[in-house]
């Protein structure tokens, strides 16, 4: 008898909890920007170095109106998405090859370990020499930073698939490719999605560092340029934009995850 009433109360409790969490989240955001603004105006921090939210937003607005900012955003976003996609897809393909050819996996093992341990960013100068100072080396940077870790994580996930699923398929005389398609790949999908999430962050690192090194355009370029001409408002503006874009990209991956994986 009390079921519906208790359920309504439970739902209300859930809504209340969600509201409280949201309130806290917004308060922290507002407080952070408010404190930053006040600290800057009252010279608790050096406004020349740390700028202030009002200046950052004015600077973003001005550049948007002038139209110069959109170009920078486009360039960086494109490079990041390409680096991310190529790195992830190549990682999955290599992992699949390692899974199909057992001996190949054993042979490659030490090379993967060394390459994974290496700070990929250090390869920057070599990439620039090899691919030229342009988009190509920046995208390569975004790619190289995510590809090996994707390979390792996805390969490990392929390995952890319950052998009994394969046994079921083999009892129907499935080929290796059928085993991969019907069991190994779908069973590893959750692991693959979680590497996607990690790779979003990694490809931003790769691209921004790449832009530090060579570019004439992009958000990484704006940061370095702002640093060189001592325009820290520009640096802060770029950071804010990067934070927003990276968050959107992450959320997109999360949406894809919800589409691909049933609870």
């Amino acid at each position: 008898m009390n079921g519906p009433k208790l359920f309504a109360a439970y739902q209300q409790k859930l809504r209340r909890e969600a509201k409280i969490v949201l309130t806290w989240q917004l308060s922290i955001l507002v407080l952070f920007f408010a404190f930053w603004e006040v600290a800057s105006r009252l010279y608790w921090i050096d406004p020349l170095l740390f700028s202030s939210p009002s200046r950052v937003f004015i600077s973003i607005w001005d550049r948007l109106v002038q139209g110069s900012l959109l170009g920078h955003i486009q360039v960086t976003l494109l490079e990041t998405i390409l680096g991310f996609l190529i790195g992830t897809i190549a990682g999955i393909v290599i992992a699949s090859m390692l899974w199909s050819f057992h001996r190949f996996a054993k042979v490659m093992d030490p090379y993967l370990v060394v390459f994974n341990a290496m700070p990929k960013v250090a390869l920057g100068p070599i990439l620039i020499v090899a691919l030229g100072p342009g988009y190509l080396s920046i995208i390569a940077m975004g790619f190289i930073i995510s590809v090996i870790v994707t390979t390792l994580v996805v390969f490990a996930a392929f390995h952890e698939v319950d052998q009994n699923y394969l046994k079921v398929l083999r009892s129907f005389e499935a080929t290796k490719w059928q085993c991969f398609k019907e069991a190994v790949f779908p069973a590893s999908l959750p692991a693959i999605i979680s590497t996607l999430k990690v790779n979003v962050g990694l490809s931003w690192v790769g691209v921004i560092v790449g832009e530090y090194l060579v570019s004439k355009q992009g958000l990484g370029y704006l940061i370095i340029y702002g640093f060189q001409v001592f325009d820290f408002t520009l640096v802060m503006s770029s950071l804010v934009i990067i934070a927003i874009l990276a968050a959107i990209m992450y959320k997109t991956v999360e949406k894809i995850e919800q589409m691909l994986i049933r609870k």
Binding site: D162, N164, K167, V168, S171, E182, A183, P186, A187, L189
Partner: peptide
């Protein structure tokens, strides 16, 4: 035909 200890139905 082969039937295993657990069902091993593919969850997806």
């Amino acid at each position: 035909g082969y039937m295993l200890q657990q069902d091993y139905l593919f969850p997806w």
